[in-house]
Each structure stands twice: as structure tokens, then as C-alpha cells.
Nucleic acid binder design. Sequence first.
DNA 1: ACGCTTCAATCGAACGTTTGTTATAAAAAA
DNA 2: TTTTTTATAACAAACGTTCGATTGAAGCGT
Lengths: 199, 199
Amino acid sequence: MAKNDCRTKLMEIGTRLFAERGLHGVSIRELSQEAGASISMISYYFGGKEGLYSAVLQEQFACFDQIEEIRKQGAEPLDVIEGYIRWTLQRHRNNPYLLRFYTSELTNPTLWFHTIVQPAIEKIIRILIDVLDDGIRRQQFRKELHTGNAALALAGMANYFFLSTLATENLVSHSAENDEELIRQYAAIFTQGILASPP
Amino acid sequence: MAKNDCRTKLMEIGTRLFAERGLHGVSIRELSQEAGASISMISYYFGGKEGLYSAVLQEQFACFDQIEEIRKQGAEPLDVIEGYIRWTLQRHRNNPYLLRFYTSELTNPTLWFHTIVQPAIEKIIRILIDVLDDGIRRQQFRKELHTGNAALALAGMANYFFLSTLATENLVSHSAENDEELIRQYAAIFTQGILASPP
DNA sequence: ACGCTTCAATCGAACGTTTGTTATAAAAAA
DNA sequence: TTTTTTATAACAAACGTTCGATTGAAGCGT
């Protein structure tokens, strides 16, 4: 095998298996076998099974570093809200495993929750709260709005759509074709729900 | 020990431990020790570790059987929506473990997902879709509304508020004191977001 | 009230696997 | 030569399950 192919392959298979069955649901024997590498490479590169898991976790949540991008350009609160929904949907389309780690860590936190997961989620929620505060300052949104609760509501709408896929695919289409329409609908529901001066 | 105390205790501890660490994260030795019972009682009563897990799962999702109650009485769509939010919040307050199984099964489904979890979630989403369709028929809600997507949005708002607790408690209060206000806010955001004839 | 049987409930030890890790030596690649 | 990878074996620890023994209450004929 070529140089460092082994490390890459272990990360790849580790991502899939840990996402599918969690840290305790996968053995390093099965993992290394599927990766076509030998068992000892896990200790060699990552210092053990947990080291590999933490490396995978770090890689998965790295995409939250670029979240600030949804704020630039126009920076109109309404645009940012739609931008967040689009960003969230595309993020899950590009990497269907992330949500597994996301919710798994929220409900069964491991050692790395506070260093990797919590900062990432806090960062994005903080941005949403900022944007909503901004919208209130511009008198676009209702001034009684509790921006913390509203931010969680927005994040919940976008994430739960994917989270529920396995249980609701018989009832609602989760195909990527409808994503643009979904973005418009969710943006409409949320922004109309918080607009100032309702009739 | 009194008759069947053992069984009850095993269910009780099993619920807590499986919720906290998942099926694979708990050993029957630790479980039985915490329950003050001997290891063999798990096989005796439940046929094994997985049998205990499935019994716990069944018990956890039993509360979805009474979901129809939010439809009776007034049956005004707007009331049912608020009723759903309240029911969801109270459900999580009364049993903080349910959400762990709920999301754990959605992202790492076990053998019993299709027999226990999926039917429960489908049932409730179906009711929400029904109610939204009803509201459109009464011309209360926008007739362009995609009721499937909207139902998931509502469920997402209510559930994600709890799901995110561990990561967002520094930013947003999750105290039960504010529940009634939260219900009003979420009901307002959602219903105003789907109302007919926006200004 | 008595002795006897029955049976569900419980226990702790033992079994065979599988776990994650480590050590070793050799092969392959750079 | 140095780094990377392989294969293999060994290890103690932990795993889920099973087995035989023990307990104690209930049922029953006398």
C-alpha cells in the first residue's frame, strides 16, 4: 500500500462504522479488516481505538469553521436565515454521517464532547442569535422575540428534517431534488413567524 | 427481596444506563450490580441483554399511544398545534430518557427500530399532517403549504430544543419554569408562519 | 399443624468468546 | 537507511450466556 494510504483508509472506514454503530458498537478487528489494514495500524497512527474516534470527530466538525461565510455579502438578516438553512441542508447532503455524530454526542456525550462538539454547536447558535438581534434592532423582527428560543427553533427545523428521515420517508419525500423548495418553505415559515407588526 | 422486585429494578436501571450510554456501552455486569440483582436475572426475565433493551424500548415508546388526546375537545387546528408542542415538552420533562432512545434509534437503528420506533414517530407526524390539511381546508393556512415538510418543521422545533440542551445551556435557558412562555413563542412562530393571506 | 412436594426467584461460579493493546520480526516502499 | 506496512502471536481483561445449587413461599393431603 502507498504511503499514508493506511491512515486515510482507517479514517474513512472509521467514519462510516462509528457513525453507523457508535464508538462501542465497532471492534478494531472489524474496522481494520474493512479498511484492508492490519490491526496494529490503529495504535500506530492514532494511539488506539479512542484516538481514532476522536480524530474522526475532529474531522467531522471541522466544517463548522467556515460557518461565518453565511454572514458576509448582503448580510440582510432574512438572507442569512435562508443562507443558514441552505448551508445546513447542503452540509447534510455532502456528509450524511455528520448528523450521526452530532446527535450521538448530544445524547451520549463522550470525552471529546466539550472540546469538539459543544464549541461547534455553540458557535452556530450564537451566530443565529446575533442575526436575530440584528433584525430586531432594524425593526424587521418583533421586539418581543426571545432570540435564543427562536434560534433553536430554526436550527431544529433544519436538522430534524434530516434526523427524522429513517422514520418518516414513507410520509414525506426526503429527496435532494426538493431541497430548494424546502429551503424556501422553511425560510418562509420561520421568517413570517418572527416578522414585526403582524396584521 | 419482594416478588418481581428484581425485574422492576432491572428495567429501571436498564432504562437509565442504556439511555446514557447505548446498548453497546453498558455491560450486564455493571447493570445488574447497580440494580442490586445477579447477572443471571437478565437472561431469566428478558432472555438476555438485548431482550432487556427491547423491553425498555417498548416501555419508553408506549407514551405515544395516548397522542390522539391532543386532537379531541375543540379540535381547532391552532389549538392542536399548541397542544402538540405542550405535549412534547411535558413528555420530555416527565421522561428525560426518551429523547436519548428516540435519536439514538434514528441514527443508529437497532433490530427493533421498525417495530417500535418508526410506527410511533410515523403516527405522530401523520396526525400533524392531518391537522395541517384540515387547517388548509378551513382556509386558515396557506393552501400552497407543503404539509409534510411543515409537520417535520414543527416536530423539529419542539424536539430540538431538548436535544440541544447539553450544547446550548450556556446560551439559552432550558429551565422548566419558562415552558409555558416557550410554548406560546413556538406556537406563535409556527402558526404565524403558515397562516393564510399574509400582508 | 404437620410434613411433603412443587416451583418460581435468586445467586455465584464457570464457560468459551471477543475485546483492545502490545510485542515481534519481516517485508515493502521511500 | 528510514519509514511505513504487514502478519502473527500473545496478553489480560471484559464480554454475554449458561449451569447447578439454594432459597422461600404456596399448595395439599393428612
